[in-house]
């Protein structure tokens, strides 16, 4: 099998040594089926053991290995080297997050936002398991299914200029997950979640850039979730205006 050489230009930031990041180039032999993550692993094993990045499943589902590849947020395990043939491949940490080291970013902010939207089934009383499952039709499942596919890889945050300009924005993934629970027929927590997603830094902060849905590696459409939440919120507000007492 033929081997080509790719030049990988990786952001290095070593807080104990460097005041600010710099680029370092590595030459990596590759085959047609190798991804950017394979190149990073090759570098770590053979060229430079100090290169630092997160990864685990290498099959696009654990969400660890996101980075900006050639300026676009991608899972490095799903970006093939041959697509960049002849060019230097720039691999940078996801944008809008502070960098802990090399490609490793700080995602505390999202972890807090995730808790804020209460991503669990809210029910007055959970029925005992002996009574069997809650029934759910295929259509009811379909309403939220795609939004439950978020792997929390942070690519959408990296792609969102609104989040880049205002860190307080709840952000695409968190809102998509909130919407996932709002639309779940088993959930009774809409009244609790609505104020959270409609806060000043919630859905109304979104100005329809739409890049979140472009970069999502799992086919989730966070922009859609945000707009649907806006519409739900607006109709709810209208209803409570028309029927102040208990119009639901």
């Amino acid at each position: 099998m033929s081997q080509d050489i790719a030049t990988i230009r990786v952001t290095r930031y070593r807080p104990e040594k460097d005041g600010k990041p710099f680029f370092q180039d590595y030459k990596v032999p590759y085959r047609k089926d190798m991804v950017v993550l394979d190149a990073l692993n090759y570098i770590k094993a053979n060229l430079d053991g100090t290169l630092t990045y997160r990864w685990s499943c290498r099959m696009g589902v654990c969400g660890s290995c996101g980075a900006n590849v050639d300026g676009v947020p991608k899972l490095t395990c799903a970006s093939f080297l041959h697509e960049f043939k002849g060019r230097t491949i720039k691999v940078e940490p996801l944008t809008h997050f502070s960098v802990i080291k090399d490609l490793v970013v700080n995602m505390d902010d999202f972890m807090h936002k995730l808790v804020e939207i209460k991503p669990w089934i809210i029910k007055e009383k959970e029925s005992p398991p002996e009574e069997g499952e809650y029934r759910q039709s295929a259509e009811e499942l379909e309403r939220y299914a795609q939004f439950s596919s978020c792997i929390n890889c942070m690519l959408c945050y990296s792609a969102c200029p609104v989040y880049g300009l205002n860190e307080k924005f709840l952000g695409p993934a968190a809102i998509a997950l909130a919407y996932r629970y709002i639309e779940d027929s088993r959930d009774e927590g809409k009244d609790v979640r609505f104020p959270i997603v409609h806060e000043l830094e919630g859905v109304w902060e979104c100005t329809l850039v739409g890049e979140c849905s472009v970069v999502c590696p799992k086919g989730v459409d966070p922009m859609l979730a945000i707009q649907k939440t806006k519409i739900l919120g607006a109709t709810n507000a209208l209803k409570s205006l028309v029927m102040p007492r208990g119009g639901k």
Binding site: W120, I121, E133, Y134, S137, A145
Partner: peptide, 16 residues
């Protein structure tokens, strides 16, 4: 069933 109650999006039969 507990996992279902906690929200796991299991695939469903036509009867739910």
């Amino acid at each position: 069933i507990r996992l279902e109650h906690w929200g796991c999006p299991f695939s469903r039969d036509p009867d739910g």
